[in-house]
């Protein structure tokens, strides 16, 4: 798939194009040896670029329009999927998708934010920003999963909960709070994966579980770098500084003890190699379900509670 390179990807794209030309069957023996050299060089450059991504570059990758979204992973990972809709209270919110999914012949409840591709799709998906109804649909389906003993897997990818009049009227804050309250006590394994953009309470509303994982180039933050720059730097152009200061990358979160595991992405990123990214995600989900299914429920809930109890840093 062709995609628009980010600034730091430019050199890689140019070399890749050159390599493609050299490898054409009619380009002769000399070109082939040149291609071999170039291939080596390309691998080195890629390795270097992707090993030293800045936080802001990671933000760009996490928000990349070609990055796999929940429904992309659904296609690539699960053997079967039936979408379930509606909160049974007010409406259906398509910024969150949910349903029964089969993974290696096991049934799970899959719940994820869903961003849109293109203007029309984004209007339907509201750019992945849920209203309270989205969170209440998620909650309804978590309870359904609990009833039948299905593990819950959530995929987090949102710029935040939607800021609007209706959202406030119908209790955006309550919807988020109530989800966390349900998730901390849910009597089935809960695995949460930040696949792209994990922004603020809108992400955490489906982010309380036994295992919290992050894709290598995903971000997870209390506020967007733009919002933080505007408030603290009083200058919305200071996004790179804010991204750096907020410590929002997967290695940062691992270091703070917030996440359990980083799921590796192929060199070049999930937006360019979806299948590889999906394979890694699938393995991580399967491994963690396996680990959690051997723990008695009451013990699992204790460990989940202790996990959140420990979060935070202070002096005493």
């Amino acid at each position: 798939m062709s995609s628009i390179p980010l600034a730091f990807e430019n050199e890689i794209y140019i070399l890749e194009k050159k390599l493609f030309e050299l490898k054409k069957p009619d380009s002769g023996a000399k070109s082939l040896s040149e291609a071999k050299e170039l291939e080596k060089k390309l691998e080195q450059i890629k390795g270097k670029v992707y090993a030293s991504l800045t936080p802001w570059q990671r933000v760009q990758l996490a928000r990349h329009p070609q990055r796999p979204y929940t429904l992309d992973y659904v296609k690539l990972i699960f053997d079967d999927f039936v979408e379930l809709r509606g909160d049974r209270l007010f409406s259906e919110d398509q910024a969150i998708v949910a349903g029964l999914a089969k993974i290696d012949n096991k049934t799970i409840m899959l719940i994820g934010h869903q961003k849109g591709r293109g203007t029309k799709d984004n209007l339907v998906r509201n750019f992945g920003m849920p209203h309270p109804e989205g969170y209440r649909k998620a909650r309804r389906l978590m309870k359904l999963a609990e009833k039948f003993g299905f593990p819950v897997v959530t995929l987090i990818d949102t710029p935040g909960a939607y800021p609007g009049i209706g959202a406030e009227e119908r209790g955006q804050g309550e919807a988020i709070a109530n989800n966390m309250e349900v998730m901390i006590g849910l009597q089935v394994p809960v695995i949460c994966v930040v696949i792209g953009e994990g922004s603020s309470g809108g992400a955490l509303a489906i982010g309380v579980g036994d295992k919290i994982l992050m894709m290598e180039n995903a971000i997870y933050s209390v506020i967007s770098p733009e919002g933080c720059a505007a408030i603290l730097w009083k200058d919305s152009s200071k996004v790179e500084d804010a991204a750096e200061a907020l410590k929002l990358t997967a290695p940062d979160l691992l270091n703070f003890g917030i996440i359990d595991e980083i799921i590796p992405e192929p060199i070049g990123g999930a937006h360019r190699f979806k299948e590889d990214a999906a394979r890694n995600l699938k393995n991580a989900i399967l491994n963690n379900i396996k680990i959690l299914q051997d723990i008695p429920v009451s013990r699992m809930l204790e460990i989940r509670f202790e996990k959140f109890k420990k979060m935070g840093r202070f002096i005493e």
Binding site: I184, L204, L232, M311
Partner: peptide, 26 residues
């Protein structure tokens, strides 16, 4: 709202406080 200067640790206080209040309820 959040204490931005504590980043993700601030966000997680939402889950932490909710967790202990859920226990109180139980």
């Amino acid at each position: 709202g959040a204490r931005m200067q504590e980043g993700i640790l601030s966000l997680m206080q939402m889950a932490k406080t909710t967790a202990v209040l859920a226990k109180l309820g139980k």
